[in-house]
Amino acid sequence: MKVSVVRNVLEANERLAQELKEVFAQRGILALNLMSSPGAGKTSLLERTLADLRDEFKMAVIEGDLQTDNDARRVAATGAQAVQINTEGGCHLNASMILEALKQIDMEGLDILFIENVGNLVCPAEFDVGEDYKVTLLSVTEGDDKPEKYPLMFNLSAASVLNKTDLLPYVDFSMESAMKHMRALNKDIEIFPTSCRTREGLDAWYGWLRGKRAEKKK
């Protein structure tokens, strides 16, 4: 017997992601899915953002890593709520993990939820975790050809933070080439060259966050 199925393979994840979107919409929480290679600076960007915007927004973080709670402890030091997920080998976060982690977060009055995905420029792009926007970081030490090599993540991201610009004098990284490829993959992508170390460019990133937060609150 042949049965016509026509069901999306990722439907289970997408159904849960939809549930998450409804929770976030009801509460007016801006949810961002932060993705990058390991070491691009996701946690550093969060440390700066959580500390600098502390008086403006109530923020929480869900941290995804294979092992350790190092990142949750780093961001919790800023005073924000942080929950660590250990995927124990899993290469990405999925919606059911976020639903589970949310139980540990006090969502009352929450403005922004950051979901820091597992460091990986490939797999996390495929799984919706209920976010409003995907944000991909790229650091200048990784090479300017990465958007071209790992296109899907940049194609799907609303914004990209180009981190570690303080190291530009020491590496062969063409900002022009990286930005050109990002825009070719996604003509609407917002690009923020930053250095979390020197704070260069962070204000533009904060401006984007404020804008998206205001849109979501309406």
Binding site: M1, K2, V3, V5, R7, N8, L10, R183, K187
Partner: peptide, 20 residues
């Protein structure tokens, strides 16, 4: 080579099964 819209290629679904 800039900013094309993807019309197809992102699909991943089970079309059918055969079983008894």
């Amino acid at each position: 080579d800039f900013g094309h819209t993807v019309l197809a290629g992102k699909e991943l679904y089970i079309e059918s099964i055969e079983a008894e």
